[in-house]
């Protein structure tokens, strides 16, 4: 059974705004029958103010598809069309206190139904701009099509390249066989063979330790850590999260994950990524620990 949040379950068992809106003046039909999820969103828009007066959904799909549809209609009622277009699939997932990685596409479908309905209202042609493939990396919810396209566009050659560009394979590593198969296939199209020992496209940063012989002062070290955190901050912010430095205690570096990162199921993977980056940059063995660990340390000292 999926690990659905209370809120997902609640919206599935008691969906809001089910059914078609009467006298709707906007309709968006999206989804794929082969995948088993399809959604019709109907809106009643006030032509004077561009406000969404009413929204209703009809969904053929699983629990999270129905919950995402219900959440979407709740979120957009009362919004102007321009504001509604700002609603992202992550907003829908957040509204539901998160969705399992395999089910994120349900929130994508919600957003696309909204785009399609608004295009329909405005008399525009809407075409789907993303294609979905089988989920390869379950840790970071990366699908086959995304990996294939990234490999093609960037001439990637190794699993490590794919992880650097898409995050796929950066967690539990169970999907590395699948990524190798994609690389083999795409490289074969270009008349090349996949070589598991090929050099990584993006050169590894030179370990700082090799250059800096002088040990850093405490202040220099903390500044350096801040700089290194700034380097990876955009990655976190792209996923609507952030990180702040709390304390540096010898080789223990305490950070606080905030925004979407806090409570994220992938928090430990994120910490691992931060640790790797800091260790590379400082050229020393360090350990990155979450805020809870700091509280624990202080309690032990008290």
């Amino acid at each position: 059974m999926w690990d659905y949040s209370e809120k997902v379950q609640e919206h599935f068992f008691n969906p809001r705004n089910a059914g078609a809106v009467e006298n709707a003046n906007a309709t968006g039909d999206v989804g794929s029958l082969s995948c088993g999820d399809a959604l019709r969103l109907t809106l009643k828009v006030d032509p004077e103010t561009d406000k969404i007066l009413d929204a209703g959904f009809q969904t053929f799909g699983c629990g999270s598809a129905i919950a995402s549809s219900s959440a979407l209609t709740e979120m957009i009622k009362g919004m102007t069309l321009d504001d509604a277009l700002e609603v992202s699939n992550q907003d829908i997932a957040d509204f539901l206190d998160g969705l399992p990685p395999e089910k994120m596409h349900c929130s994508v479908m919600g957003r696309e139904a909204l785009q399609a309905a608004i295009a329909n209202y405005r008399g525009e042609e809407w075409s789907d701009d993303h294609e979905e493939g089988a989920l390869v990396c379950k840790c970071f919810a990366i699908d086959e099509v995304m990996i294939e396209e990234t490999v093609r566009a960037n001439q990637l050659k190794t699993v490590e390249d794919v992880t650097n560009y898409t995050k796929a394979g950066g967690g539990c590593a169970a999907c590395h066989e699948g990524i190798e198969e994609i690389l083999t296939r795409v490289l074969a199209e270009q008349g090349e063979a996949f070589d598991p020992n090929a050099a990584v496209a993006a050169p590894e940063p030179e370990p700082v330790a090799a250059q800096a012989k002088q040990p850093l002062t405490n202040l220099q070290r903390i500044k350096k850590i801040e700089t290194l955190l700034d380097e990876i901050r955009p990655n976190l912010q792209r996923d609507r999260g952030d990180v702040e430095l709390l304390e540096v205690d010898g080789r223990n570096i305490y950070v606080n994950l905030i925004g979407a990162c806090s409570g994220c199921q992938l928090a430990s993977a994120t910490l691992g990524g931060i640790q790797q980056h800091l260790a590379d940059g400082l050229g020393e063995m360090i350990q990155v620990l979450p805020a809870e660990a700091l509280a624990h340390r202080d309690m032990m000292r008290a």
């Binding site: 969906p15 089910a18 059914g19 039909d29 999206v30 989804g31 794929s32 029958l33 399809a38 959604l39 019709r40 959904f57 009809q58 969904t59 053929f60 129905i66 696309e112 399609a116 809407w126 075409s127 789907d128």
Partner: peptide, 21 residues
């Protein structure tokens, strides 16, 4: 809740009536 269903039966020509993008 289904876009293929209306009242007591499927919509007429379900595959045509609802053909999502």
């Amino acid at each position: 809740l289904s876009p293929y269903w209306q009242g007591n039966g499927p919509v007429e020509e379900p595959e045509k009536a609802f053909a999502p993008t």
